[in-house]
Simulated scan of single mutants.
Amino acid sequence: MSDDPEPAINISGGADGGGMATDFDPATAETRTEVVVDRLGELYWQKTYGGQDAFTCLVRTILSQNTSDKASQPAHDALIDRYDGTTVDLAESLANAEQSLLAETIKTAGLYNQKSEILIDAAVWVLEEFGSASEFDSYVRGESPSTVRETLLEVRGVGPKTADCILLFAGGRGGVFPVDTHVHRIYRRMGIAAPSATHEEVRAVLERDVPAAKCGFGHTATIQFGREYCTARKPACLEDPEACPMADVCDQVGVYPETDEVVDPADAPK
């Protein structure tokens, strides 16, 4: 396993974001999907997650929507500096925030007007439903994952990936494999999920084929792999099949080295 620490500019928050390092034996893998996840764990990191504050995690995940971690991280830091006080919890601060000032604070995250409205609405919802951010945190950690997920999906601006990130990084729930654009692309490109599979269909395949304890680092390590090797437009295998550590377990759906062409797996010829 790599000695490189998990980057702090990551929805997991890196080494300070909660969770703990864990070792797994790749020889015990029972599916091709598990082989991929084990190999990613050896390439990057193996961690079980949990321990983040649920509302802070919700804020961080909303800020990360439709943008990169490098863009959303400064917005997150600026928001925490301005609104996370010692006498008033973050949910109360954001519920009473001036929308234009909040928008200016999170400007680097993109879609800042929309996201500022969503954050204020989410804060008001937390206070109305749970009374405080700490009670919301207790709910996320203590209620059944399916119930928490259903509840979160009723909140404006919270989709499946955001709900699953909260369950994983705050709730510490095993068996949750959030699907972002990297995860969605990579497991269809590998041929593990159907080329036309939706985000939810990819999630169902991964949560079926990957042991619960490995889903967390499977998610974060896949994202890192997508940034370094299996990029959307120029995957490493396009020029050199040997350059990708997953070459022997990948079907290269939509990747054509002979013509230097890459298409979304859904658009690949049948």
Rank of each mutant, 00 (worst) to 15 (best):
residue 164 D to T: 06
residue 120 I to N: 08
residue 197 A to I: 01
residue 142 G to S: 14
residue 150 E to N: 10
residue 150 E to W: 13
residue 43 L to R: 15
residue 90 L to E: 03
residue 119 L to E: 02
residue 68 S to H: 12
residue 40 L to T: 00
residue 40 L to W: 04
residue 60 R to A: 09
residue 237 C to P: 01
residue 149 R to Q: 11
residue 63 L to K: 03
residue 144 S to V: 06
residue 126 V to L: 06
residue 98 E to D: 15
residue 221 A to G: 13
residue 252 Q to M: 09
residue 99 Q to V: 10
residue 137 D to A: 07
residue 70 K to Y: 12
residue 41 G to Y: 04
residue 93 S to T: 13
residue 168 L to H: 05
residue 263 V to G: 10
residue 231 T to I: 05
residue 53 D to M: 07
residue 211 P to H: 10
residue 34 E to V: 05
residue 72 S to D: 08
residue 159 G to F: 11
residue 106 I to W: 02
residue 136 F to D: 00
residue 208 R to S: 14
residue 61 T to Y: 13
residue 151 T to R: 06
residue 35 V to L: 07
residue 179 V to L: 11
residue 111 L to M: 09
residue 32 R to F: 11
residue 265 P to N: 06
residue 177 F to Y: 07
residue 216 G to V: 02
residue 160 P to S: 06
residue 17 G to E: 00
residue 56 T to I: 12
residue 141 R to P: 04
residue 258 E to D: 14
residue 201 E to P: 04
residue 146 S to T: 13
residue 194 A to K: 07
residue 27 A to G: 12
residue 240 D to C: 12
residue 181 T to V: 15
residue 22 T to M: 14
residue 177 F to R: 02
residue 136 F to M: 05
residue 131 G to S: 11
residue 187 Y to N: 03
residue 187 Y to M: 06
residue 178 P to I: 04
residue 14 G to V: 03
